[in-house]
Amino acid sequence: MDFADGALSAFRAVFASGLVLSSLYVMIAAGLALVWSTLGIFNFAHGAIMVIGAYVAWTVSIDLGLGQVAGLVAALAASALIGVAVNRLLVQPFLAQPNIILITVMTTLSGAFFLENSALLIWGPRIKQLEKIVDGNVFLAGTAISGHEAVIIVVAPLMMLALWAFLRFSWTGKAIRAVAQNREFAELSGIRPERMYAIAFAISAALAGFAGVMLGAIRFITPTLGADPLIKAMIVVILGGLGSIPGTILGAYLVGFGEAVSTYFLGAYWTQAMMFFVFILILVIRPNGLMGRE
C-alpha cells in the first residue's frame, strides 16, 4: 500500500504544480503568439516587458502603498505602453525588409537587454516580491496550493477565452486577423495596418505584464526574471503550431505538465535538457507544430 500512496501523492503534487506552470505559460505564450500571427515576428523583449510589469506593480502597490489594484492597473498600462514603443521603434521601421524575422530577432533582443538593464538601474539589484492576491491555501486534488496560485489557474483559461472572443467577434479583433492573413486586401478594405499592429502589440505586452504581476508574487523579481519563462513560452508557441491559439493552449499545458513531471522524477537539473529533447523530437515528427497548418 505504501507504494500506491506514494504514487498517488506524487501524482497530486505533479498535477498541482503542473497546472500552475501551465497557466503561467499560457498567459506569456498567448501574447507571443498574438504578435507572431499578426506580424510574423518573435518579440524577444516579451520577457523583459513582463519583468517591467512586475516592477511597476511593486513600485505602485508596495513602495507607494497604493494597493494591489492600482499596482495591477499601472503594470498593465506600463507594459502596454512599452509594447507599443517596442513595435514603433524596433519592429515597424524594418517591416518592409525581406529578412524581417532575423532583423527583429536582433532589434527586440537588444530591446530586451535595454529594458533589463534599465530595470536594474531604476529598481536596483535587491530582489523584490509582490504580495499574493489572495491569502491562504486552497486544496487541489489533495495538495495544498496557495490561493494566489489558484487564482492563476482559474484566470489563465478565462483570459484565453476573452482573447479568443475578442479576435473572433469584435471589429478590432477581426481587423487584426485580417491584416495577419492578407495585409494588402485589409488595406483596400479600409483597415489601417499600423494601427492594428500597435493594438496587437499593446494587448500582447499587457498580457506579459499581467503574467509578470502574477509571477512576481510567487517568485522573486529580478531584472532577468523573464528570461526563463520567455524560452518556455517560445517552446510553447512553436510546439503549438505558430500563432494558433488552441495550439498555444495545448502547448502550454504540455510544457507545464511535462516540466512538473520531469522536475519531480528527473530533478530540475535534467528538466531543461529533457524539454528540448522532446521539443526537437516533436518538431522532427510534426515540423509545423502540433496544431500548425501547411
Partner: peptide, 29 residues
C-alpha cells in the same frame, strides 16, 4: 477606400481563414 474609391485586386486570395460573411463585413470596416 474610406472616400469611396474601392479597388478589387486581381486573383485575390482574400482572408483565407475567415468566413465569407466575416470577409464581406470587413469590407465595410
Amino acid at each position: 477606400a474610406e472616400r469611396g474609391l474601392v479597388h478589387v485586386p486581381q486573383g485575390n486570395r482574400l482572408f483565407p481563414q475567415m468566413s465569407v460573411e466575416d470577409c464581406l463585413d470587413l469590407g465595410a470596416f
